[in-house]
């Protein structure tokens, strides 16, 4: 039995198979409509994340399965002090697979060691959020036709942005990826990513402050939002949150094939003016998130669809 804790749990070949399956689901959804009939997904959300939870639930429903679970710690037995280990032992009796979101880092790993069903890490604190990374990879591969041989700009909060760190770690496994790291001085990529991941693996990367300087060179632009809870004072947050605003003017600097991604929800960093621009791919990304979760559920449950 397999779990998913980190996007790097899958080898490049396994990931290729998973993404192929996701693309087949996209092309032939009816073929998979009953693949998980009679099976149940438990969504164990110890902190609210409606978007991620609904994506998992939609994925299981699309496969003909059903869902159960809780959406915050106070509506669960955790509020009564039950350990993660006990909860997963109980849930193993109710469901066939589970997705766990937890504010504490490593909680899904603890669950996986005691579980009789596959556990998917649906986000643990600032640590990992592997299905977001799988979503990003599927979106990039589907829209660009390949993983690797491109220049990607990562823009916004690169210091605390967990999705950015995971994406970098996933992309360095592919050939010829150039990274342009675009952030204000205060939110630069942390040393461990710069030194241990990028430099050590001899990746091409540069760090810039102005988005305008990077845009003409990009095949992909990955925008992130600045999260309020990362700041101690309102003033710093307000200054940082409007540091980058991608609008029509700036999009004129980008090439015709550049695509814009964002893990959503957005705040101010992408103007609604560009939502209709064909290069804006962040809502397609949401759709790919459902396909990749469907592929993941099938893979972990070892369901074969002919």
């Amino acid at each position: 039995m397999r779990h998913l804790m980190s996007p790097l749990d899958f080898s490049v070949e396994e990931l290729d198979r998973l993404l192929d399956l996701a693309n087949d689901i996209e092309a032939n959804p009816e073929k998979y409509a009953h693949a998980c009939s009679g099976r149940k997904l438990a969504t164990l959300f110890y902190e609210p994340s409606t978007r991620t939870r609904l994506s998992f639930e939609a994925a299981m429903l699309n496969l003909g399965g059903s869902v159960l679970g809780f959406s915050s710690a106070d509506s669960s037995s955790a509020a009564k002090g039950e350990s993660v280990s006990d909860t997963i032992r109980v849930i193993s009796c109710y469901a066939d697979i589970c997705a766990m979101r937890h504010p504490k880092e490593g909680a899904p790993l603890v669950a996986s060691t005691k579980s009789r069903i596959p556990v998917i890490n649906a986000g643990d604190g600032g640590h990992q959020h592997p299905t977001q990374t799988l979503t990003d990879l599927l979106t990039i591969r589907s829209l660009k036709g390949r993983l690797g041989k491109f220049t990607i700009g990562l823009c916004g909060d690169l210091k605390f942005g967990r999705t950015v760190h995971s994406l970098i770690q996933a992309l360095i496994r592919y050939p010829d990826v150039n990274f342009i790291l675009i952030s204000p001085e205060e939110l630069r990529i942390p040393d461990n990513i710069r030194e241990d991941v990028l430099r050590r693996n001899h990746q091409n990367f540069k760090e810039v402050v102005r988005l305008e300087d990077a845009l003409p060179d990009l095949d992909l632009l990955y925008m992130t939002r600045v999260q309020k809870e990362r700041f101690f004072n309102e003033e710093d947050y307000v200054r940082m949150k409007d540091f980058y605003i991608l609008d029509r003017e700036k999009m004129k600097l980008a090439g015709p094939d550049m695509i814009v991604l964002h893990p959503l929800p957005r705040v101010n960093e992408i103007s609604v003016d560009i939502d209709d621009d064909p290069r804006a791919a962040y809502f397609k990304q949401v759709q790919y998130g459902v396909y990749v979760r469907m592929a993941l559920i099938l893979t972990l449950l070892e369901v074969k669809v002919c």
Binding site: V84, V110, D196
Partner: peptide, 21 residues
């Protein structure tokens, strides 16, 4: 020592470290 670590709230867990580098 990470306050966001699951071991900070579930004290009965073994403290396990692995040699990463």
């Amino acid at each position: 020592k990470n306050p966001r670590c699951i071991t900070s709230i579930e004290q009965e867990l073994d403290q396990i470290f692995f040699l990463a580098d």
